[in-house]
Design a protein around this nucleic acid. Structure first.
Lengths: 178, 178
DNA sequence: TATCAAAGTGAGTCTCCACTCATTATTCTC
DNA sequence: GAGAATAATGAGTGGAGACTCACTTTGATA
């Protein structure tokens, strides 16, 4: 990544505001929400949004990168099961991550960021396996597949707490022995 | 449902063509595909589509009703695990069902049709439980939740055959004992 | 086969939204 | 603080797509 000249103070402030607004708007209404809406929430003119992020996809890519980084950080602090549980619980509040993990509609490539998340989950998986909490036969691909599936399910299905718990119980049982 | 006067022969023919075309187009490109595209595939003018289905959502509701009915029928011929496997395998080819099960974006109510599918899966679940193939503690809500999650995951993630199998293995193990 | 209601047609309307750019405002540097 | 560089502004453009309607065609009925 190449560093350009440092941003002017107002530009830095606005860039941050736009990212926050975009995260909130897209989380609430999904990625179909308009860029205009984001600008309004950020208290900024539409042109400013496009100065910082030349296309809507660039904007989406930026917030998703940020969200993924957060996930990676979170993964570092938890065990596999807790991470799953937490992510699923948050899914409904984070349409964006889910849309990204799902690759739904939006044309975005974030191989690095996604790769980092996979690595983080990979570490959790190894730990869990080492502790005997997960069967040896379970590999990373299906673990990621389950993670993304459950997030999408929880999000779109609007699962309540109980349903989240019941569903995760089944999946965890499957991870422990299969 | 109130029966109007019977459709004229050409109207019946076109209605069927439109439904087939819509199913194919939406399966291939998702529900974002345009009504114009559907009309073209059906070999019919755009106005004809809108005569039969006054809004795009009406069209979507119609094909989803048909697809759900097919699923219910299929559920009647299989055991729970086979049904899961088959549905997941088909998910990638049927963006539409998944979009429906997910309720993503489109504003459609099909409580009846969805209810029938739940009933069908409920029967499969009971059979599986009776045969000792599924743990007693497993209930219908989480079974449906897993079903829809996996479909969405498989669809959006573009799972290959191996990943489908591996992921289902974990889930099936979880259903057997938890 | 003559009639006419039902159905088909497709150019056109309308709305929404991503994106532009000439102009104005703010920061930075000396 | 003046001048230059950078950023913000927001009315405007273009294109896509859902939906309409005046007119033409077709199928059912007598």
């Amino acid at each position: 990544m190449i560093e350009g000249s440092p941003l002017r103070a107002d530009a830095q402030r606005n860039r941050a505001r736009i990212l926050d607004a975009a995260e909130a708007i897209f989380a609430e209404f999904g990625t179909r929400a308009s860029t205009e809406e984001v600008a309004r929430r950020a208290g900024v003119a539409i042109g400013t949004v496009f100065r910082h992020f030349p296309t809507k996809d660039d904007l989406l890519a930026a917030i998703m990168k940020r969200l993924l980084a957060q996930l990676v950080e979170e993964a570092g602090k938890r065990d596999l099961f807790t991470f799953f549980t937490h992510l699923v619980a948050q899914a409904a509040a984070k349409k964006t991550v889910v849309d990204l993990l799902a690759g739904s509609g939006v044309d975005i490539r974030l191989p690095d960021a996604v790769g980092h998340l996979e690595e983080a989950v990979g570490r959790l998986l190894e730990q869990a396996r080492a502790a005997g909490a997960v069967a040896d036969s379970v590999r990373l691909p299906e673990t990621m597949a389950l993670l993304t599936s459950l997030c999408q399910g929880a999000l779109h299905g609007g699962w309540d707490q109980q349903l989240q718990a019941r569903t995760l119980t089944v999946v965890f049982a499957g991870l422990k022995r299969d």
